[in-house]
Measured scan of single mutants.
Amino acid sequence: QVNIAPGSLDKALNQYAAHSGFTLSVDASLTRGKQSNGLHGDYDVESGLQQLLDGSGLQVKPLGNNSWTLEP
């Protein structure tokens, strides 16, 4: 069960990665100043990332080996 409060997208993504045990490689300029609506409930990694990114204009991309990145 994930419980991440709304706020900074950077912070939300870092909390989610730490909670879910995956690696997220992101260029900080992509997420700077963006906000997230947070995340509450049970999600697989990709669904949770998509939910956190909702409205940010960013997309999640798998890199393999439980690693992910973001792209515009």
Rank of each mutant, 00 (worst) to 15 (best):
D54H: 14
L30H: 05
D10K: 07
G55Q: 05
Q15D: 13
T23F: 11
A18H: 10
K11W: 15
T23D: 08
T23E: 09
N3Y: 15
G55R: 06
L13P: 01
Q15Y: 10
N3L: 10
A28F: 09
S25D: 11
D10S: 11
T69G: 10
T69C: 10
N66Y: 08
Y16V: 01
V2G: 04
E46H: 11
Y16L: 06
G7Y: 02
Q1L: 13
S47M: 10
S25V: 15
D27N: 09
L52Q: 00
R32C: 14
E71W: 07
G55M: 06
P6G: 08
G33V: 02
G55Y: 04
T31Y: 05
S67C: 11
Q50G: 08
Q1M: 14
K61N: 05
Q50R: 15
L24S: 02
S36M: 01
Y43G: 03
S36P: 02
K34M: 08
W68V: 02
Y43D: 02
F22N: 01
K11Y: 14
R32T: 10
Q15I: 10
A17N: 03
E46S: 08
L24N: 01
L63M: 11
K61C: 10
Y43P: 04
L52T: 01
S56V: 04
K11A: 14
D10L: 14
L30C: 11
V2S: 05
S47G: 09
S67R: 13
V45F: 12
L70E: 00
E71T: 11
D54M: 15
S47L: 08
Y16I: 01
L24H: 03
A28V: 10
A28P: 14
L63F: 07
S29G: 09
D10E: 13
P6M: 07
H40K: 13
E46P: 10
T69V: 12
S47R: 12
L9W: 02
N37A: 12
L13I: 06
H40L: 11
K11Q: 14
P62I: 09
N37W: 10
N14F: 14
L30I: 08
G38D: 01
G38I: 02
S8V: 05
G48Q: 02
T23Q: 10
K11H: 13
F22P: 03
G38Y: 04
L52A: 03
L13Y: 03
K61T: 07
T23I: 12
S20R: 14
N14K: 15
W68R: 00
D27H: 08
S25C: 15
F22V: 08
Q59N: 10
T23S: 09
S20K: 15
D27E: 09
D42H: 14
L49C: 05
G48M: 05
S25I: 15
W68S: 00
N37C: 15
Q35D: 08
S56F: 07
